[in-house]
Design a binder for these strands. Structure first.
Length: 274
DNA sequence: ACAATATCCTGCGAGC
DNA sequence: TGCTCGCAGGATATTG
């Protein structure tokens, strides 16, 4: 599941490979992954564009192209955006193939087809749903303890749901939400309003620490995730609760449990997450 | 405004 | 062997 650390790793590995490259052709196999414009317009506009830089905002990849165009990609659940040699066989669920001027391919693959691509001109980024309403980047200066305090205050929603809300803070998904709550020893079903100042301070520290660890480990490859070179991350080897049902908590020796929350799994330690 | 739930999609494993 | 069911979850739409 590409969350902030995974998308950041894709950004870095793609930057090394495709900045300076020009798109010379495109094959759209599954048109529905392209949100805008329509395939004919997309094809016409993308060809000849040079990749000038890549940045990340939350879980969105943003490719700055020549002529003031911007291509935005969201990998959602199973999306992969990788560079491949032209001779490499095309896997099932490959939806879009960009031909690059160095003879290689940039390929968008997504087994479950939740991922999507937008191509807009500069200034039209507000046409991309969700991008303009994202909360602050958790690993940057703009994210403060004051912002987190305001986000949880007087909220009856459960804290895990608040962490997953991209308007509050950008880039946290199910894996890192569970790991952050474990690290701060807070139970996922606590309401925002119930948190003490001390707990909010711990949560703030854990958000930064766990996400930074995820980036350092180049992401969590639990099922499909790979970076822009097709390589897996290693953070799955450092998970304390996510997908760890029955394992012994190293902090209190209780057994890790899974509960259902909002249609999602919430992994936690019933012994020390209060 | 807020909080919870349904929806999209495919593959896999459990259970019968 | 082959079927059904539940599960995986990011973001949006819908409901209360």
């Amino acid at each position: 599941m590409p969350e902030l650390p995974e998308v950041e790793t894709v950004k870095r590995t793609l930057t090394e490979q495709i900045v300076g490259r020009t798109v010379t052709g495109i094959t759209i196999i599954q048109p529905s992954v392209i949100r805008c414009p329509a395939p004919a317009g997309f094809t016409q506009s993308i060809i000849g564009k040079k990749v000038q830089g890549i940045r990340r905002r939350g879980k969105y990849l943003i490719l700055n192209l020549s002529d003031d165009y911007t291509m935005v990609v969201h990998l959602r659940m199973t999306g992969q955006f990788t560079v491949a040699e032209r001779e490499t066989p095309i896997k099932k669920h490959t939806h879009v193939i960009f031909d690059l001027d160095d003879g290689r391919h940039l390929r968008f693959w997504d087994q479950r087809r939740f991922g999507c691509i937008w191509l807009v001109t500069k200034g039209a980024l507000d046409r991309i749903g969700g991008l303009m309403t994202l909360g602050p980047e958790p690993l940057e200066e703009g994210f403060t303890i004051d912002i987190l305090t305001k986000a949880v205050s007087n909220r009856q929603a459960r804290i895990k749901g608040i962490l997953l809300d991209q308007h509050v803070v950008a880039g946290i998904g199910n894996i890192y939400a569970d790991e952050i709550l474990y690290n701060s020893a807070i139970h996922p079903e606590r309401t925002g309003a119930s948190l003490t100042m001390d707990e909010i301070a711990r949560l703030f520290t854990s958000i930064k620490y766990i996400l930074a660890q995820g980036v350092e480990h180049r992401g969590t490859s639990f099922s499909d995730y790979v970076d822009g070179r097709g390589q897996k991350g290693s953070h799955q080897n450092y998970l304390k609760v996510y997908q760890q049902v029955g394992k012994i908590c190293e902090r209190c020796q209780a057994k890790i449990e899974r509960i259902k929350q909002g249609g999602r799994s919430a992994y936690h330690c019933p012994g020390c997450q209060k």
